[in-house]
Design a protein around this nucleic acid. Structure first.
Lengths: 211, 211
DNA sequence: CCCTTAATGGGACTCCCGTTCCGTTAGGAT
DNA sequence: ATCCTAACGGAACGGGAGTCCCATTAAGGG
């Protein structure tokens, strides 16, 4: 029988020699992808256009990522690395408001807001991008949940309150507002989201249910 | 100067003779679009494929709608027409829970859930689809807001509570959960959303701020 | 029932996205 | 410094989405 000399696991490009040029190409392409997403949204994403912006060969982009969703998934992985440390105000109300305003400012910012809408779209179109998006939000929630735990320990909230659930409750109305209404995301809506989450938490709405 | 005999406002097809065949074509195409959205999502939407499913000429679909986003916008307008009447349980908690469970069942349903994700994506890709989506949710919220107003009149909630805001607060965590986590949307999450919204409303988080 | 023309449908054409082929460049190990 | 080959980049190719043209069908008014 003939030995197969070809294709000894081509694997994915960029994994064997991840340094030097490969890393530069990845950085340039991810930055270009971000720009393109902000300008045209996910549906208008064109890998050829991204290659030009990044001053990289079209073939390279198609070979390394292959699809717009895979590229966005990689971008999300990159975004998840650079999570801002949360500020700590000392009080639950202050912490939740700080979180709400951070989310609000992010979504209201022309560049960041467009980017987030785009990655959400990508996640709804592809399982891998969806997993990357979930990972991103898991990180974000984990970053902020401790401020709720601290409030529980201070006795401000019921003992078995689910911190992650409270943090998610702060973001949810802001995302929902962005997606389903035309009203601008202002500070008032952020403060309202924080206030509502705190009130519900105090009332015990986010206590852990027996699984 | 020569008179222009051509193109005396071609206008949009389907507006001059909306009956008979035109209506049948629209219905068939919208149903086909719904099926296609459920199967492949918005990003996989192909007008040629829809034409085949609807047993309609490709040219017709391209001429009448022109783009996938415009087609989805029309589908959303159609969906907004058929809004279910809300049930009235008599108590605020019961009404909010009924609403939450309706949303939860809709989003958890394989067909309806996929459809909603798809139209949200379309709305994030195109201004007209976005306006159609906003109109859809405006109708939905208006349908349910009265149960909050009734609770206010019964003295269950602060007098200047914004009913629409409470209704949106019920839906928000369910949509947020669907988009950013992999956890299934179960009845427990629906009940928690309703409970949280009620607690926040009682605490006055949704009182109208001076604009 | 007949006439006008709005609306549809098939087929050919164009353009651009994604792929393939192969020569060139530069990591990284020795 | 030298070699091996992973990774890149240019160019040509193929296929499918969207457009155009014109013949055919059937609303809807008289």
């Amino acid at each position: 029988m003939a030995v197969e000399p070809s294709t000894p696991e081509p694997s994915t490009p960029g994994t064997v020699r991840p340094g030097g040029r490969t890393a530069r190409v990845r950085a340039a392409v991810l930055r270009a992808a971000e720009d393109a997403l902000v300008e045209h949204g996910f549906s208008g994403l064109d890998l050829g256009d991204i290659a030009q912006r990044a001053e990289v060969g079209r073939t390279t982009v198609y070979r390394r990522w292959g699809s717009t969703t895979a590229l966005v998934a990689d971008l999300l992985a990159d975004m998840a690395e650079q999570s801002l440390p949360r500020t700590d105000s000392g009080s639950l109300a202050g912490d939740l408001r700080a979180n709400a305003r951070l989310v609000q400012r992010t979504l209201a910012d022309p560049r960041q807001g467009a980017l987030f809408r785009a990655v959400i779209v990508a996640a709804t179109c592809d399982p891998d991008a969806a997993e990357a998006l979930r990972h991103f939000y898991r990180r974000r929630v984990e970053e902020w949940a401790p401020c709720v735990t601290a409030a529980v320990e201070r006795g401000e909230l019921p003992p078995d309150t689910d911190g992650s659930e409270v943090v998610r409750a702060v973001s949810a109305p802001l995302y929902y507002r962005m997606l389903t209404t035309a009203e601008p995301l202002d500070e008032a809506s952020a403060d309202r989201a924080a206030e509502a989450a705190e009130a519900a938490a105090r009332a015990g709405a986010y206590r852990r249910r027996d699984a």
